[in-house]
Amino acid sequence: MITDVICEDPRWDDAGLEDLSEIAAAATLTRLALEGDWEVVVMGCDDERISVLNADFREKDKATNVLSWPSEERAAEKAGNPPLPPKGPDPELGDIAISYDTCAREAAESKKKFADHVTHLVVHGILHLLGYDHIDEKDAALMEGLETEILGNLGIADPYTI
């Protein structure tokens, strides 16, 4: 198992967050050729909980779809691919929180399958754990391209097409 899933909101159990997270993590690590026993903690919560986390850690007092906390800083010093983590004694990549309410709303608004949207957001969160970001246009294009490729490998349509 790559993911350790904690469902604070029971709707995530019914939605299959554990399986979706494992599939997303495996596809992401495979695409990046990260071998070994890596670990990611995924917490499924609701808008109320993620709003508190977003306020505490990002000073944004509102709900969001996914948050991530890398176990260590992995961002590239300049635009482009961040260095991949070396194999070492600590396989922990970090933690992700994902809100059921926001994911369900976004999936409905964009007419996407809920499971596909959740898979996308877990891939997105794991890429953040690995140092990818979307702060500037070049890094955003790189990250979105990876997300699209990883999801395509899973048979999920490009999430950035309208």
Rank of each mutant, 00 (worst) to 15 (best):
P10Q: 04
V52K: 07
A24T: 02
M43F: 08
G155E: 14
E73C: 03
D37Q: 15
I135R: 11
T161H: 07
W69L: 05
A24R: 01
G155K: 12
S71V: 06
G145R: 15
P159L: 12
H128T: 07
C7P: 04
Y132V: 03
E149R: 13
T102V: 11
A33K: 08
N54D: 14
C45I: 05
E137K: 11
L154Q: 11
S71D: 04
I162N: 14
L32D: 02
L151Y: 00
A104P: 03
M43V: 06
S110G: 07
T102L: 10
G88I: 12
A33N: 09
D19S: 13
S51N: 10
E18N: 11
D116M: 03
D61P: 08
S51K: 09
T28W: 05
P89W: 12
K78F: 02
A97D: 03
L29G: 03
V42Y: 03
A107I: 04
A79F: 10
R58I: 09
R49N: 06
C7E: 13
A107G: 00
S99K: 06
A24K: 02
I150Q: 02
A107F: 05
N153K: 14
I135H: 13
L130Q: 00
L130G: 07
A107L: 07
D90W: 12
D139H: 06
S71M: 00
K60Y: 09
A63T: 15
S68T: 01
S51A: 11
A76K: 01
F114I: 01
I135D: 12
A108Q: 13
P159N: 10
P89G: 11
Y100Q: 08
I126F: 05
A157M: 13
K111C: 06
M1L: 08
D133S: 14
V40N: 01
K60N: 11
T64H: 03
L84Q: 03
D19H: 10
G80C: 10
A108T: 15
H120T: 13
T161G: 04
G131M: 06
D158R: 01
E109Q: 13
L151T: 01
A24W: 00
S110E: 13
M1K: 04
P83C: 07
E137R: 10
K62W: 14
D61H: 12
I50K: 07
E73Q: 15
N81C: 14
G131Y: 08
L127S: 02
D116E: 10
D46M: 08
T30Q: 12
D133E: 11
P85R: 02
H128E: 09
K112L: 13
M1R: 02
D19N: 08
E109D: 12
L67P: 00
I23A: 00
E147M: 04
R74D: 11
E8M: 08
A104C: 10
P89S: 14
A115Y: 04
H134S: 15
R31N: 07
H134C: 09
H134I: 02
E147N: 06
A141T: 05
Y160K: 15
K112Y: 10
V40E: 03
K60S: 09
E92N: 15
V52N: 06
P89V: 12
I150F: 01
P70G: 03
V41Y: 05
A26C: 14
H117M: 12
